[in-house]
Every structure is written in structure tokens, then in C-alpha cells.
Amino acid sequence: MINTLNLELKDIPGQLEKALGGFSKHDANILSVVHHREDKTPRGTVPVEVKVDVGEVVIEKIIEDLRSRDVEIVKVGEENLSRSFMVILIGHVVHSDIRDTINKIDDTGLAEVKDLSLKMPGINKESTARLFIKADGESGVKKTINLIKDIAKEKELKVITEMDV
């Protein structure tokens, strides 16, 4: 699990080392450290963003440790690496209520339809839609695709996904 910790450090020597000590003590794998010197806070502290790959239990210990070191923790968040992918739907896409299709995807909270292109060659002819969808992480993509397949089955639409999605 990737976690992002937003910290604020005093602008005096040795502060970063002190903070990172709280991570190394728990064998946390630090993925990146971004030191925002140019974005000093009104209080004069320096924002630092640390990304780590650790389990839930370890992250609690790290937070405890950082507090005991007097390191200001602003925000802790599990990161959802969002992924965009494309899906093509063929059939009576509009008449089977495209709005409902989009709502069903958006309502999962895992994914969001960001873009829709529609081609309608003629009245009573099947239309074709291309959807760009943004989903949370691999599991979000997988769940969303399964949902789209279920919707397509119910609405008698043909689904074309990307090969590697």
C-alpha cells in the first residue's frame, strides 16, 4: 500500500534527517521525498511530502514515532493511483439510456466517466460510443470493467475493451 505523508519541518538544519529517522526505524520503503522549500508556510515551516510503501500497522507506528520526534504531520493519505482507460460500446447505446450507464459507473465511487464520444449513423441504426473512464488503481479498473460488462449484457450492448486493461 502506498501512503503519502505531508509533513511540515522547521527551517533549521537536521530536521529532514530527524523526520526520515522515523521511517527508517520501521524499515519503511521510501518511494520519494519532495522538499518544498519554495512553498514555505506562513509560519515559516517547510512542507515535505514523503511517499512510502508500507502496511497499515506500520504506518500507525511511523505516525506515532514522528509525533514523538516533534514532527508536524499535516495529512496522511492512502494513495489511489488513478488510471484512465477507454471502452467502446456498440448497440442502442442512447436508447438504452446512456445517462443511466454513466451514472451507474460514477455511482460506484471507484470510477468516473471523463469523456464521451458518440456516433449515430442513422435513426434505428446501432450507435457506437467511446468512453474515457478514470478509475482508482488496478482493482478499480477491474471492478469497473466487470460492471460495464454487466450493464452491457443487460442493455444488449457489445463491449470492446483495451487488450491490456
Partner: peptide, 19 residues
């Protein structure tokens, strides 16, 4: 069966082919 030429067009706009 049932694949439309519009589907190939929409894929093509994004530099994709359908196979």
C-alpha cells in the same frame, strides 16, 4: 459480428485498432 465501422473510427481517433 456486430462491430460497426464507427467503432473502428472511434478507436482510430485514439491511435488504436480493433483486433
Amino acid at each position: 459480428t456486430g462491430i460497426t465501422s464507427e467503432a473502428l473510427d472511434l478507436a482510430n481517433e485514439e491511435n488504436r485498432v480493433i483486433k
